[in-house]
């Protein structure tokens, strides 16, 4: 190795190693520690107090609060994804041909995406207010009696789903827009000349070509939805929020067990379950995404 090669290598290592070490400390090590701690009876001060094997996991599946969280989160992820992907696709198709107002619409739909979650959760909580809320007022115009949106457990999860769909539609829409605009005009023209109507063009040209992107967006939405926390924390806490366990989600349950009851090992085992769900979704994405290309 000549001098220049040596210098290059010294530079490469001295530049990359500090960064990798920070990664190791802040990401890689904690990811592995989380697995480790999940097999221990532990506290914050002593995360490996007593090795208990898979006891935490056994207890998990007898724990009604955990099972409720898992159910709620899955329902939440399912509906947020279905609605946000479906509606975003509709908006993207309508916005695909560039028009004078197109840019304005893109901006408006994208506003909730870039806004931080806390302030928008605060205002949605106010919109959902049972006595003075804007939503109940709008519904009253159609003769619907006031509903306790965040008060009734069955309704509260829908209230949070609606708000979360509102928050993410713009992101999905932007990705779809890029995908649709990448489709060569000639394909669509050819289909139109052959007598295809707008719906047929969408069904037989746009949709098949958009499949990889559709899959990507669906998986990303599902993964993000599984990590839901902030809006649940804001909207279900305080005097007007939902009662305790109504919209308990996985991360909320992890948060409570680890940082309110200090059952860190137990909470770590819940985090492992979340990890496995996300891993599974990622593998599906990599698998099928690879095939499409």
């Amino acid at each position: 190795m000549n001098r220049m090669e040596l210098q290059k290598r010294i530079f490469a290592y001295s530049a990359v190693i500090p960064v990798v070490l920070i990664f190791a400390f802040l990401r890689v090590v904690p990811i592995f520690q989380n697995f480790l701690y999940s097999f221990f009876n532990s506290t914050v001060v002593d995360p490996m107090q007593e090795f208990i094997g898979i006891e935490n996991y056994k207890e998990l599946f007898k724990d009604n609060l955990f099972l409720l969280s898992l159910k709620n989160t899955t329902l939440f992820a399912l509906f947020v994804t279905v609605f946000s992907v479906g509606l975003a696709l509709l908006v993207a198709v309508l916005l695909a041909t560039k028009t004078a107002l197109g840019g304005l619409f893109e901006t408006l739909y994208f506003l909730p995406v870039i806004t931080p979650m806390v302030p928008v959760a605060v205002v949605w909580k106010w919109i959902y207010d049972p006595t003075y809320g804007l939503l109940n007022y709008c519904l009253s115009l159609f003769g619907i009696k006031p509903l306790g949106w965040l008060v009734y457990p069955d309704l509260a999860i829908w209230a949070i789903i609606i708000m979360s769909v509102w928050k993410v539609i713009g992101y999905n829409m932007i990705i779809f827009l890029v995908g649709i605009r990448d489709i060569p005009d000639s394909y669509i023209e050819a289909a139109t000349i052959d007598g295809g109507n707008k719906f047929q063009v969408f069904r037989f040209i746009i949709l098949p070509l958009l499949r990889p992107i559709l899959l990507f967006v669906t998986i990303i939405s599902t993964i993000n939805a599984y990590n839901v926390f902030t809006q649940v924390f804001i909207m279900t806490s305080g005097p007007q929020g939902a009662p305790g366990n109504a919209v308990r989600t996985l991360v909320f349950d992890i948060y409570e067990n680890a940082f309110r009851y200090f059952k860190t090992g137990y909470a770590a085992s819940e985090a492992v379950v979340l990890f496995l769900i996300v891993l599974l979704l990622t593998l599906v994405q990599l698998r099928t995404g690879g095939k499409e290309r």
């Binding site: 960064v19 990798v20 990664f23 802040l26 990401r27 890689v28 090590v29 904690p30 990811i31 520690q33 989380n34 701690y37 914050v44 995360p47 993964i223 599984y226 990590n227 926390f229 991360v251 992890i254 680890a258 940082f259 860190t264 909470a267 770590a268 985090a271 492992v272 979340l274 990890f275 996300v278 891993l279 990622t282």
Partner: peptide
């Protein structure tokens, strides 16, 4: 190694990080 950590949500390892 760096890229793989991108797939892992923060919420799944915040407990050890806190410790």
């Amino acid at each position: 190694l760096v890229l793989a950590t991108a797939m892992v949500p923060f919420e799944t390892y915040m407990i050890p990080l806190y410790i």
